[in-house]
Design a protein around this nucleic acid. Structure first.
Lengths: 126, 126
DNA sequence: AAAGTGTACTAAGCTGGGTAGTACAGTTGC
DNA sequence: GCAACTGTACTACCCAGCTTAGTACACTTT
């Protein structure tokens, strides 16, 4: 489901967060779909369950997943994420800031707006 | 010239890198314009010169600035950055990957493509 | 009752960011 | 030539954060 890069300087729990967030926002994980349990994912990735738990807890605080004690953790709907404290509008403003910085750098490297916009969709399947 | 956020979890040298890169790619720093010296910026920001040096060294490795021993450090031209080892095409591919992830999350939050494209330019002045 | 689930702690080790201090070589201006 | 500036290159140390290890509790499902 996920692969870790130990050469990457980013913390493991951050890589897990980004990977799961990516699957959720792209639709690879559908709303209300069950995520692997903390313990099973810890076994799969051969890391400590606490590390998974941290990623899950922060993703829940940001509104991307929700957890039910005794049952498991599930992907949230976008409309739920928007209503999360951590998310809207602070998160959205942060995303827009990063978007503008990315676009500025791509322009700096010589790309025009038409090329950038077409890059938003081309070859989405990795 | 720059402001640091000590509440931010991001390392100081990373904040300096991002701030200078932002000024360069947006044109706030013109090509061949001289940057503050490592020591003077260290005094201004009240931090250790080694931290500035690290930011400058990495920015130079990524092609955004160039340094001349004894003279100073200067903003590079975009055409130079593209020719840098670290930059093109690895850097560009990484930027495109991040762009697609950002757009996916903005769509997840309910924005359509027209809104996202218009956000690329509106209110650029912060 | 048993197994699996999320949740909540404490304790410890390790890596990396940041500081402090020093030193050397090249450039500029007097 | 000399002083003051510049970038560059080290070593050493402290500390916050990441990660692991271990344990425990409450809830759900079978």
């Amino acid at each position: 489901m996920l692969t870790l890069n130990y050469r990457d300087s980013r913390p493991i729990y951050g890589q897990i967060k980004d990977g799961l967030r990516r699957m959720i926002v792209t639709g690879a994980l559908e709303p209300d779909e069950k995520l692997p349990s903390i313990r099973s994912m810890a076994v799969d990735l051969a890391i400590n369950p606490n590390t998974i738990q941290r990623a899950y807890a922060e993703l829940e605080a940001e509104g991307f997943i929700y957890s039910v004690p005794g049952k498991g953790s599930f992907a949230a709907k976008g409309s739920d994420a928007v209503r999360c404290v951590e998310s809207d509008p602070v998160r959205q403003a942060e995303l827009i800031r990063r978007l503008r910085e990315l676009v500025a750098e791509l322009r700096y490297l010589g790309l025009n707006d038409g090329e950038i916009i077409s890059l938003m969709n081309e070859g989405v399947g990795q």
